[in-house]
Each structure stands twice: as structure tokens, then as C-alpha cells.
């Protein structure tokens, strides 16, 4: 994830100012900042000439848009049945142990946010998770340790 600071106006210029542009704009904001702030929502509302409350109502409908700050890496671990059957819980426990956070929380260094999510469409290779946009499958407690380590290293190398 590159932290490019766009202005909401730039995004409206890119995606247009009709209501259809709302989700692409919110997605871009979230992609860039891993949060959609109050101020951003008001600015989007102004650019598209819609109510700020509706921007909020729309954003909160979707699980990939958040009005709370998330970490640099958002981990979404599948909690649906086949991943559950193939060992999601031990993987979750391991994640909780090494990150020292519970689902819904972000590590104090702002690197990782841990979430549980519904089926990721990787059921034949469960347990599965996404880290930002990247799928990781056939997880085991051992493999998630390595995966988290590699993201930590990546973060350090910036």
C-alpha cells in the first residue's frame, strides 16, 4: 500500500460527480488511507451534492469500507464453515497470540488490523485469509507466523 494523499476533489475529478461515483471514490479514499474520515465524508458529500449522512449510511453498509482507522495491513480471516472445519480457530488463536490483539482491533504500532470475515471464495484451500488484497490459503499456525513476519519485514524496509 502506498500512502498517496489524494484530495477528494481530485477523486471526484477522476470518477465524476454523479452518485454512481460514490463507491469508487470511497474505495479510493479507503485504499489510500485505510480510513474514511468524517472530514472526507463531508467533502465527498459536498462534491457529489448529496447528504453527508447518506455517505455515512452507504459507507457503513459495506464491510470493505471503514470509518475507523485500520492498520497498514488489514487481515481478513474467513470464518465461514469450510474454513472453520479445516482449522480456522487455531489459526485465529495464533494470529491473536502473535499480534496481541482480538478481532476488530489494530496493533498499537498501526501495522495490523485483524478481522473475521465471511467466505472469501477460497474454500477448497481453507483456511484462507486476505491481507489487504492478497489471498493466503491453506493456513496453519506455522504458516501465518511466516506470513505476518514477511509483512513486518516489508513494512520495515520502507
Amino acid at each position: 500500500m502506498t500512502r498517496i494523499q489524494y484530495s477528494v476533489t481530485d477523486m471526484a475529478n477522476k470518477h465524476g460527480r454523479s452518485r454512481e461515483a460514490l463507491l469508487p471514490i470511497l474505495q479510493d479514499i479507503y485504499q489510500a488511507k485505510h480510513v474514511i474520515s468524517d472530514e472526507d465524508m463531508v467533502n465527498v458529500a459536498r462534491e457529489l451534492d448529496i447528504s453527508a449522512a447518506h455517505v455515512y449510511g452507504t459507507a457503513t453498509f459495506y464491510s470493505f469500507l471503514e470509518t475507523q482507522q485500520s492498520g497498514k495491513y488489514i487481515i481478513r480471516l474467513c470464518k465461514t464453515i469450510t474454513c472453520m472445519m479445516h482449522g480456522k480457530n487455531p489459526v485465529l488463536q495464533e494470529l491473536e497470540r502473535i499480534l496481541k490483539i482480538k478481532p476488530g482491533q489494530t496493533t498499537p504500532d498501526g501495522l495490523f488490523t485483524l478481522k473475521e470475515t465471511n467466505c472469501l471464495g477460497q474454500c477448497h484451500k481453507g483456511p484462507a485469509m486476505l491481507v489487504n488484497d492478497n489471498p493466503h490459503t491453506q493456513l496453519t499456525p506455522e504458516s501465518v507466523r511466516e506470513i505476518i513476519d514477511s509483512y513486518r519485514r516489508e513494512a520495515l524496509s520502507y
Binding site: 460514490l22 463507491l23 470511497l26 457529489l48 452507504t58 453498509f61
Partner: peptide
Amino acid sequence: FMGSGAYICGEESALFESMEGKRG
């Protein structure tokens, strides 16, 4: 058009609403 994480948006009319920038 990227979805934003909502199973219901697979339902066709919810999908249109979503593409129109609304709640699905």
C-alpha cells in the same frame, strides 16, 4: 466495478443499487 464487501450485492437489484452509489 468493484464491490465493497456485501454478499447481498450479488442479488441483481441490490447490485444495481450498489453500482448507483447506494446501499445494496
